[in-house]
Design a protein around this nucleic acid. Structure first.
Length: 460
RNA sequence: GGCCGGAUGGCAGAGUGGUUAUGCAGCGGACUGCAAAUCCGCGUACGUCGGUUCGAUUCCGGCUCCGGCCUCCA
């Protein structure tokens, strides 16, 4: 491999060379959704970012196992069930299906594994038993709690000391806790709440234990990369580290931690109370998924991303340019090409997607300038190779430019006949009539473009 | 209050101890019957105050502003 992948490791707060535990098999775990509601645009960011990472890893290494969990045990789900009267499973199954549909629209590939918490309760119970046996957890009042003071290095990932947390604690401390910073591994369930039999009675797991149990089951006690949103560093990931390393030994668990930045909307914090809360579904009604994806990749994953209508519009226009160029060479078989060096180098530099996109623009310019068929075929190949690594430019150019799969045939036929009528008018030098046809179509959102091979059309 | 991150041209957004991406918008030109698309050319930006340096947007410190986390939010 010509290039070295470098990634910013939250654990060390520095950019490091990525050296996998096993160069023949790279392992990646990303925190997936809690399935109680439609995915919002903030949920889409890690999905897209780590999708690009997984595509890149597959390019660089012979085998990659990417696991992304589904959290289907959670008190928010329980609350939703009580409010709506619908069963837990109906809610989680429907929400999971929505999640898959939304991500598919964003061209996010499925991970290799998508373990569900409810399928791994036994693994979690075993892990909790182990932690109790090792003196890192205790039972109190029907709960099992992780004993934070039992772990010397607690707080390393999030960079905070136990004193900081006590000083800043703004949550009342449950009376059964030995220490205010202890957190729940297992809690009792009443008859109305989902529960599983355990050595501590009927109950359900705490939030953090599922990721520790499932990552260890599928990727091993020690694996390469763990990803998620910045807001998960504390407490979620810190607690995962605590559970897993206390169970499996120091130095185990994730070797590199990657966290994506948060999303803002039109310069403001995204929140339901401000009414600036977009679901992926809302946005897909306005713009194609590929435009959302490009918009997401136009900002580096660790930076805060300001989601704006303007930015989304710009992303769509950018794709119009790419697909316009690809449409002009649609009849040419693309040469089979490696990913352009500049694009690959940018992605290998801590997933610098904005830089990669600027390199892609260079290729676009070259394609637009290319005169020979050979150059065009080569550059088309470059564009498609880079595009597939980023999860972009995979559509049929004509379908994109004419408004996607849903375009009605009637429109196409009507536009074609008007183009013919305009052609006749132009031949007869009746430019007033020709312009009239063009203007009328433009009012309907159809743009005509006269080229050397005749007139083509696209949606505005 | 504690901990962390950010501030780049009209906008978005990379990057760099000295030659200053990329895109959008704008301006000029080529092409076109006119457009559109495409191509060519143009804009010398790095919050603020100090320090280090021959030289700082880039390194260090103060300040201001913005954002995140502080026990179940991606």
């Amino acid at each position: 491999m010509a290039v070295t992948l470098r990634i910013h490791n939250t654990m060390t707060r520095t950019k490091e060379d990525f050296v996998p535990l096993d160069p023949t098999h790279v392992t990646l775990y990303v925190c997936g959704p809690t399935v109680y509601d439609r995915a919002h645009i903030g949920n889409a960011r890690p999905a897209i970012v780590f999708d690009v990472l997984s595509r890149l890893l597959r390019r660089l290494y012979p085998k990659v196992t990417y696991a992304r969990n589904i959290t289907d045990v959670d008190d928010k789900i329980n609350a939703r069930s009580r409010e709506s009267g619908r069963s837990i499973s109906a809610i989680t199954e429907e929400t999971t299906r929505w999640y898959h549909e939304d991500l598919a629209a964003l061209n996010v590939l499925l991970p290799d594994l998508e373990p569900r918490a409810t399928g791994h309760i036994d693994d979690m119970i075993r892990m909790i038993e182990d932690l109790v046996a090792k003196g890192h957890a205790y039972e109190a009042d029907g709960h099992v709690l992780f004993s934070v003071p039992s772990m010397e290095t607690y707080g390393r990932l999030s960079g905070r000391s136990i004193e900081d947390m006590i000083a800043g604690a703004r949550v009342e401390v449950a009376p059964y806790k030995r220490d205010p910073s202890d957190f729940v591994l297992w809690k009792p369930s009443d008859d109305e709440t989902p529960g599983w039999e355990s050595p501590w009675g009927r109950g359900r797991p705490g939030w953090h234990i599922e990721c520790s149990a499932m990552s260890s089951r599928y990727l091993g006690a020690t694996f390469d990369i763990h990803g998620g949103g910045l807001d998960l560093i504390f407490p979620h990931h810190e607690n995962e580290v605590a559970q897993s390393t206390c169970c499996n030994g120091p130095g185990s668990f994730a070797r590199y931690w990657m966290h994506n930045g948060m999303l803002m909307v039109e310069g403001e914090k995204m929140s339901k109370s401000l009414g600036n809360f977009f679901t992926v579904q809302d946005l897909l009604a306005r713009q194609p998924g590929e435009a959302l994806r490009l918009c997401m990749l136009a900002t580096h994953y660790r930076q805060p991303l300001d989601w704006t209508a303007d930015g989304l519009e710009q992303a769509r226009k950018t794709l119009d340019r790419y697909y316009g160029a690809l449409g002009r060479v649609a009849d040419l078989e693309a040469e089979d090409r490696p990913v352009p060096e500049g694009v690959l180098a940018a992605l290998c530099d801590d997933l610098n997607t904005p830089k990669a996109l600027s390199e892609l623009h260079v290729v676009l310019g070259e394609l637009n300038r290319a005169e020979s068929r050979a150059d065009q075929a080569r550059l088309k190949g470059d564009l498609l190779a880079a595009g597939s690594l980023l999860g972009l430019l995979g559509q049929d150019p004509e379908a994109w430019l004419r408004g996607g799969e849903g375009g009605d045939d009637g429109l196409a036929a009507r536009v074609e006949s008007l183009i013919q009528a305009r052609k006749d008018a132009r031949k007869a030098k009746d430019f007033a009539r020709a312009d009239e046809i063009r203007d009328a179509l433009l009012k309907e959102g159809v743009v005509l473009e006269d080229g050397p091979q005749g007139t083509t059309w696209r949606k505005a």
